[in-house]
């Protein structure tokens, strides 16, 4: 049994969820005495192979080419398809990140494989993989068995633990035969922010309509910076134009599952919960003790966020140094 993990990187940096995927792949491989292959695609990325084997890769397949520097969906998918076919791996594991979502679907269609996205749990039933994934905005979960291989799965970021485990990491280079693409990237604009990405962040501080206006987000940002957190928002705040849509958490925004989610001035509408209810620990700050967010929160403070959030920030600075 062989498993193939695609280790996502941008700008030569492995994504935290790439390490999670490798670790989960390792765990699945160990459970069946199987082999773990990890694919790296990009330019100038050969040195990432060591990092990848430190998380348990038996073999690392590297496609390193100047033409692959920025993500090119067609070329990346073709390379993965070739690696999948040649290795005979039965399961390909990616992440449900922006890149992984597209790439997994392209790969699956090329390989005539089914795709199970947003997986939050995996296990073997004999030699069938069985996965658990949310449906209906997290109001139910499906247990799904893989009947035919190869099959592609994407793992939800921040759900699986990354753990170092020495692997042999035999490196093999592949030369992509065709890096042409039907889709051209004509411009990329990165935000410069020191804050982590929402989908990768371990801690998120989110503000909703209770923020009252865009200028008040500084209180959220200050707490976020103390905690090394990302900043999120509800749709009400995004629709009001206070925050960019990229910050929106929920059904029509991002799905996040940080260790800690602090919801400030957010009522807890079902569509918001859809995006964050799988967070490991939820804190709510709200003036209304009846707000539905308190039903899902592990800890709540009833009060004015403009008093409570700065106090949290001071306490965090004091206690966490």
């Amino acid at each position: 049994m062989k498993l193939l993990v695609f280790a996502e990187q941008r700008e030569g940096q492995l994504k935290s969820y790439a390490l999670e995927a490798i670790s989960e792949g390792r765990r699945l491989a160990d459970a069946t005495g199987g082999t773990l292959l990890v694919a790296l695609i990009g330019s100038g990325i050969s040195d990432l192979a060591d990092q990848v084997s430190a998380y348990g890769a038996d073999e690392v397949v590297v496609a390193d080419d100047a033409g692959l520097k920025s993500y090119a969906p067609g070329a990346y998918a073709r390379i993965l398809k070739e690696v999948l076919a040649e290795s005979g791996a039965s399961i390909a594991i990616l992440t449900s990140s922006a890149m992984g979502r597209e790439l997994s679907a392209l790969l699956a269609a090329k390989a005539d494989a089914s795709l199970l996205s947003d997986v939050v749990e995996t296990q073997w039933d004999g030699d069938h993989l069985v996965v658990k994934r949310p449906v209906y905005a997290g109001k139910a979960f499906l247990k799904v068995a893989v009947k035919r291989t190869p099959t592609v799965v994407t793992l939800r970021p921040n759900v699986f633990a990354a753990a170092e485990k020495a692997g042999s990491g035999v490196v093999q280079s592949v030369t992509p035969s065709d890096i042409g693409s039907k889709v051209q990237v004509i411009d990329t604009a990165m935000k410069d922010s020191d804050r982590p990405e929402l989908t990768e962040a371990g801690v998120i501080v989110s503000g909703g309509r209770g923020m009252g206006g865009p200028e008040h987000y500084t209180v959220i940002e200050e707490l976020a910076d103390t905690l090394g957190a990302a900043v999120g928002a509800s749709r009400a705040a995004v629709d009001a134009g206070w925050r960019p849509h990229a910050d929106q958490v929920g059904q029509t925004g991002k799905t996040v599952s940080p260790n800690l989610y602090i919801a400030c001035g957010i009522s807890g509408a079902i569509q918001h919960l859809a995006g964050m209810s799988s967070s490991k620990c939820i804190v709510a700050v709200n003036t209304d003790p009846e707000a539905p967010i308190f039903k899902v929160a592990d800890y709540g403070i009833v009060g004015d966020l403009f008093e409570v959030v700065p106090a949290l920030n001071n306490a965090a600075k004091d206690l966490l140094g």
């Binding site: 800690l260 620990c281 939820i282 804190v283 709510a284 003790p289 308190f294 039903k295 899902v296 929160a297 592990d298 800890y299 709540g300 403070i301 009833v302 009060g303 004015d304 008093e307 409570v308 700065p310 106090a311 949290l312 001071n314 306490a315 965090a316 004091d318 206690l319 966490l320």
Partner: peptide, 20 residues
């Protein structure tokens, strides 16, 4: 069931301790 640990900024330090 989650718990409301209290009201207002006075409980902020307690919350941070609980989180830690």
């Amino acid at each position: 069931e989650g718990r409301i640990i209290g009201e207002g900024p006075e409980v902020a330090a307690e919350l941070i301790k609980l989180l830690r």
